[in-house]
Design a protein around this nucleic acid. Sequence first.
DNA 1: CTCAGTGCAAAGGATTTGCATGCCG
DNA 2: CGGCATGCAAATCCTTTGCACTGAG
Lengths: 147, 147
Amino acid sequence: MPVDDLHAIVARRLSGSTLRYTTSRRAIIDVLSRAERPLTLPQILGSDVSLAQSSAYRNLAELIGAGVVHRIVTSDEHAHFELAEDLTEHHHHLICTSCGTVTDFTVSVRLERELDVALAGEAAQRGFTAEHHRLDLLGRCASCLSA
Amino acid sequence: MPVDDLHAIVARRLSGSTLRYTTSRRAIIDVLSRAERPLTLPQILGSDVSLAQSSAYRNLAELIGAGVVHRIVTSDEHAHFELAEDLTEHHHHLICTSCGTVTDFTVSVRLERELDVALAGEAAQRGFTAEHHRLDLLGRCASCLSA
DNA sequence: CTCAGTGCAAAGGATTTGCATGCCG
DNA sequence: CGGCATGCAAATCCTTTGCACTGAG
């Protein structure tokens, strides 16, 4: 998606509330869209965005509330942030248990569909209302293996 | 698996190191094996096990190191603990985004196998060494819906 | 002018660690 | 007896919150 379109969409979703699309928020969205992987807060702040840590957390919280950013918790360390799936595409994560890096990957539409069916069945059976699923692969990434 | 067998296996794995299979550790294993879902530390301590919080965390860390307990991080709140998969069976989790409760479920062997193949392919392609996968379904559980 | 946004510092909350003591092998 | 286990309290670390100030509309 072109960056301009992205900003337009984000701006629209923010305007629903009384939220402004400030330079800082725009910078966060830019960094996340440029990154090819979910970033931690330190990474976001290192990357270009100059902002107090607390403001960054606050902005991310607003952006999450507006449905444009998603927060991923993989361990006890920093959470990772990425653009919401409807601004990118449905995907999954490879998580390195050694360095914590998160990388994206996708599976075939067919498998994805089979998963949905199976999960919907399980959910229905327990009166559980599914919002979304999460499929992660845990292991050691190439750079940690060579290290 | 009969509880006695379970304890025997745990004892064997602990004896590898210089770890003792104390009453407290045995109690933790008992609680986890009786529970039909992963438990948080407060739940473990409430459930029967009388132990200082720090000792409970320490024991869980030892048990995890010995490969008999697994730790699940779902959000920022308490982590959940369950017996290692090779002491139970491969399964997945339904996670309630409202109350945080975690419930187990399984999918068909066929689907599980397809997943493994697809994931192995993705991993290989990136020089990633997979340890295991994780498939979670997020949503609201029956009791949170009725509440 | 008003109110959202920001920075700084302090507070929170789960988990870990230091240290002295207790107890199993 | 020696060393692992345990309890208590203090320390960590990520994240959140309080508060006063700044700036955009």
